[in-house]
Design a protein around this nucleic acid. Structure first.
Lengths: 101, 101
DNA sequence: ATAACATGTTATATTTATATAACATGTCAA
DNA sequence: TTGACATGTTATATAAATATAACATGTTAT
């Protein structure tokens, strides 16, 4: 269910792309300028992975392709997946506190 | 910084292992019984990735190896990484509400 | 002591992800 | 309309993740 999103977030380059898009949408060549170490094809492949995970929404405008961040899948993981783990961490810390007192 | 954790969470099998460990610690053979489709070596490799990301803490007891969940790295991602994205999602929704009213 | 058990180690096959190269299409602006 | 630009497509090389196999060590219970 969250698999595509987790996989998309696994690569540091893709998280960096999301960081850039959080500030404002960007065209693909904007992104290529931001990541001069990467080939344009590499950037596009990463964008495809992000778009497949619905983390990036693409809007074509003339000859430009505007890439927009969609943070909802991340919020969804936050709401439905992380909760129980955060609770587990809190529980362990509580037990530790209790043991120390 | 969070890279090892994100990478560790990327594989569905590893997330399933964490789900099991959230209920209670388990020995490696417990886990192998829970995942009969996987070879024991595969389970151990996944545990190594999880342990390297500090998501699993290993405690040796005699001939058994007890694997404990450590949810703190997940809580850390929650606290320091997800926040800005959740804010972005909320902001977009607010703008949408405003546009509709 | 010894057989069954639980785990550890090393090597390797298979699959998947990452990064480029080469070429193609569509768009804008002078 | 034509040259520069932005993007798309297909193929391929390289690196990394995933899954097993074969063998080894240490531990427990009888």
């Amino acid at each position: 269910m969250f698999d595509a999103v987790f996989k998309a977030l696994a690569a540091p380059t893709r998280r960096q792309i999301l960081d850039v898009l959080r500030d404002h949408p960007a065209t693909t060549s904007d992104l290529c300028n931001r990541f001069p170490a990467l080939d344009r094809c590499t950037v596009m492949q990463h964008l495809k992975v992000l778009a497949d995970a619905d983390l990036v929404i693409v809007q074509r405008k003339g000859r430009e392709r505007w890439n927009h961040l969609n943070a909802l899948p991340i919020k969804r993981i936050h709401d439905r997946w992380i909760g129980p783990y955060a609770a587990h961490a809190a529980e362990v810390i509580d037990k530790l506190d209790l043991a120390l007192s």
